[in-house]
Amino acid sequence: MRNVVRRIAVLAAGALAACAVFEVGLRPLYWLPYVHHPRLGSILPAGTVARYCREGCGTSRWADDGARHATPLDPARPAILAVGDSFTEALMTDDALVYPQRLEAGLDGGWQVVNVGRSGASPADYIALAPLYAERYAPRWTVIQLRADDLERDACDPSKTHFARRAEGGVEAVEVPPRPSRTSQLLAPLRRRFALVNLATLRLREFRAAASTEPPLFRATARAPAEGTPAASYPIEAELEALAAAYGGRVTFLFLPDFDPHDVATPGATELRFTGACLAHAWSCVDLRSAFPQLAARRESPYGFPNSTFNTGHMNDAGHAAAAALLHEEIARLRTLALL
């Protein structure tokens, strides 16, 4: 009996030591002490210095709850708001390299660009949260980052805040408040304290998701990809109108299309509709495609990282630099027109 207890103690001590080593080793790679916000969902609280090193490696400083900014926010300085999803949040990219921070660095006149990008957020979220952002940051202008997917499937996903068509035409945002699971609530204190627990809960979620969509063993049972709703059936123009209205028309839309270095010129169907709506409404719009010829000439892709896959995934340094340069030109144009 004593021998069994001794062996269990040795096993537990070895396992605990391994966990301790992992905790120390993980912190420089993954440190995201999320807290729950009733409207924003999981956010990084003010004062956090976060580290994310899975796809790319980046350190981010959070000046306010859910707002990324390398230095403390100054209410006296005029603000530009950068709204978007994980492409704007850009946890995998260092502060100085993300497009909102690059844009701020290039602007004179004391502007600060507040990055409120949030992973998993949808365009309908941006509308639902516009009053909250207005109250917090009183932005003079807002940059809204969009991809084709955001305006299509994501915009109408009923599991999160989404668009619904109004009977009288147009769309409205239907808010779905974020609800943390019971387990998530129970583990929250541990997740905020230990990188190991934090990453373990994320991994378990990923494993669960993978198990539910386990790839078939062989080709025979390979399910054909579900027929997507054709881009033409999404109310893209109405979505853009609603977004522009939510921010008082003082917006620049930043569109991020897929990159094909051998065909930098041909836009996709949703992108064409986006461009058409921009022209029709004389909105301020920036399409990253304008930077594609230079990127292709430099043999760079705006997406993908050395520790993930080339030209797949989120924007890398080159992508953020290109987006910031285009936005800078657009802001300069707006200022010439005395709109900003």
Binding site: G14, A17, A200
Partner: peptide, 23 residues
Amino acid sequence: ASTFAGAFVVSTWLLLLFFFAPT
């Protein structure tokens, strides 16, 4: 896992798989 070092190595190995294997 009968020794401390063995338990440590096996646990580390399993943690590596858990945290870094693609899902």
